[in-house]
Design a protein around this nucleic acid. Sequence first.
DNA 1: CTGAAAGCGCTTACAG
DNA 2: CTGAAAGCGCTTACAG
Lengths: 351, 351
Amino acid sequence: MITQKQIARQLGVSQSAVAFAFHPTLHAHLSQDKRQHILTTAQRLGYQPHHAARRLIRTRFRRSTDQFDQVGLIFLAREDERVDPVCLAMMCEAEHEFSRLQASLTFVNVSVPGGWSKVDRLTQTSGVDGWLVYGPVDDAIVGRLRRNRLPFVILGDHRCTQPVNCVRLDNAAAGRMVAQHVAKLGHRRVAYLRGAISRGYIYQRETLDGFRAAARELGLDTGERWIGEAPLWVGDEGRPQVVSWLRQFDPMPTAAFVSEFDMAGTVFRLLRASDIAVPGDISLVAYELPSLATTNQNFSRVELPMSEVGRQGALLLHQIATQPKQAAQEVTVAPRWAEGETTGPPRAHAS
Amino acid sequence: MITQKQIARQLGVSQSAVAFAFHPTLHAHLSQDKRQHILTTAQRLGYQPHHAARRLIRTRFRRSTDQFDQVGLIFLAREDERVDPVCLAMMCEAEHEFSRLQASLTFVNVSVPGGWSKVDRLTQTSGVDGWLVYGPVDDAIVGRLRRNRLPFVILGDHRCTQPVNCVRLDNAAAGRMVAQHVAKLGHRRVAYLRGAISRGYIYQRETLDGFRAAARELGLDTGERWIGEAPLWVGDEGRPQVVSWLRQFDPMPTAAFVSEFDMAGTVFRLLRASDIAVPGDISLVAYELPSLATTNQNFSRVELPMSEVGRQGALLLHQIATQPKQAAQEVTVAPRWAEGETTGPPRAHAS
DNA sequence: CTGAAAGCGCTTACAG
DNA sequence: CTGAAAGCGCTTACAG
C-alpha cells in the first residue's frame, strides 16, 4: 500500500506538503501547482488514505470534521418480526451511496441483549462517524443517541416528539394518490382494506388519513363503513371473509385498495374464486415495495421506494456529519404510482 | 475513554506491562498476580481497546494474528433479484455472533459497479480482518478473494471446484427428510412440485437428488412423471395449472412436496378451491425459512435454518482467522422437520 | 509559503 | 521478569 511518506519521497517534498494537499481548507497553503502535482501523483500511484490512522488521529484533534468513512446502521427489530425486506432494500441503497463517499456501512442489530453496548463501544472507540437508525424509534432512543454526540439520521417512521434528522416516506401522499387515481376513473364507492391494525403502525394511520382527506375532497363516498380490517394476516381461515365483507354492501364498491404489502395477490385470487371480475366488477389497487412479487403481475399499485429512503438517509447523514450544525431536517420521499391492469372505469350500471 | 496509559499510571506500572497483560501469549511474561491485578483494574475502569490503533499497528507487525474486530460481508446479488430474506437472516445471526467476539460487521454489496474495488480498498487499508461471502460464488471470485490474502468463508451454496471454507445447508437431507416422513405415514405416490428451474439453483438440484435417492430406497413410486415444474413464479395465470397437473394422474398422488419458499400456501388455496381436501385427499409438505408466513399456518414442513448458517459462518471465520493455517472446512447445517396439520396417512382406498 | 516535529493508542523488539 | 523506546500513517500546531 502507498503512504503519504512514499509520495513525498518520490516527489522530493515534505510529508506534510502531501498531507496539506489533501486538506485545502487548512490555514497552511500550498501553491496551486504544487498541490495539483501532488494530487496527480497520488492518484497515479493509487494512494488510499489509511482509515485506521485517520481514526486514531481523530481522538487527538477532536474537530477533524471532514472524516466520514465508517457509518453504522442500527437495526431495531420489533420483537415479533424477524425478516424485514424493507431493511435490506434501504441498506443496499445506503451502502451504495456511502461507497461513492469512500465510506462503508457497519450493521448493528440492537434487538438482542447487549446490542446497545455495542453501539456505545463503537461510538467511544471512534469506530463509526455517524449512525443510520431503523425501527421503532422514540424519544428515549433519541436521547441515548444524542448522548453519544455522533450525528444520526432516522430511516422511516418514528415516534419522536422532538425534531430529529430523518428520512421517511410520505405515507399520506400514498393514500391520496390512490384516492385520486380511482376518482379520476370515475369510481365513487371505494373500499379500503387494511391488515391487522392492532400493532398501530404509523404508516397505517397516515396512509388512511391521506386517503380519507383526499376522498372527502374528491367527493368519494367514504364513511367508516367502507374501511374494513381484512384478517389477511391471521392465517388462511380468515381470508374468505374479505369477499363476504365486500358483498355486504349493496351495491358493492367498484374499487378497493389493499393497503398492505404483498396482499393484493391473495385478494385478487379470492375475488376470482368468487367469480368477481377484476377490473370488470371491481378495480383493485395494491400497495407494494418496488421489488415484491406483485410487481410482475401488472397490478395497478402505489409503490413505496424504500431504497430511496436509504439513499436520502445516507446523503443527509453525510451532510450533517461534514457541515456545521444546523436545524434538524425531515426529508420525505414521494411514493410512485404504477398503472397496471387491475383498474378501469366502473361499469356504467354500477356507478 | 480509558487508555492503557491511564491504567498504567493509576497502578504505577509501565504502559507495556498493561499491554502485556492483554497478550499472555507473548514471550515477555508478567507474574500471574500482576497480570490479574491489571486486568481487574482495566475491567473496573471500563477499558475498551481502541480499534483504530490496533489496526494501525497491524500494518507494522504483519503477524498480529489475534486481531479480529471488523469483518466484511460481501453480498453478491443475482441481477434479477433485489430483496433476499435469506441474506438478512444470516447477517443478523452472524452479527450477533461477532458481537460476542467484540467484532462488528461491515456490509458490502458488490453487485453494483465498483463494488469489488471497495472490497480491495478495505482489504488493503486493513479495513477488515476477514470476509463472509454470500451469493453465486465461483472459482473466479474465490481466486480474487485469495489474492487479497484475508481469510474468508462462503455462506450457502457455491459453484467452486476447489476446496473452500464454507457453511451451507444440507439440501439433500431436506429432500430425504420429506421422503422419509411421507413414507412413514404410508404414502407411496408422492408428487414433487418445483418452481421454475430455468435458473438452475444448486439447492434445487440437491434437494431433488436427496428426495429421489431416499424415495428409491423407501420404495416410493417416484419416476420422472411425478416431478412437475409448477409455474408458480410466473404470475397468476399459470397457477391453476398445479391442480390440473396433479389431476392428470389416476389415481392421484396422495402427497405432494412444494419445494420452494413461500409457495405452499398458494398451492393449499388452489387445492381447496378445487375441493381437494388437505390432508384428507392429499398431504402437503412445505419448504420454508423459519420466519416465513407459512410458519404460522401450521403446515407440515421442512425448515431451512439460514440464520444458523450465518452463525456457523461467523464461528468458522473467527476460527480460521485466529488459528494457524489448516485445510479448508465445509460445514453443513441440517434442516429441521416441523410436524403440522397438512400431512396425514393416505385414505385407505387410495393407498 | 514550507518543513520539521509532536503525538493519537497501541504492540513488540530490545535493552536492562 | 520489567520498562523505556520505536514506530504504524496520519493531521496539525508551530517554528522558520
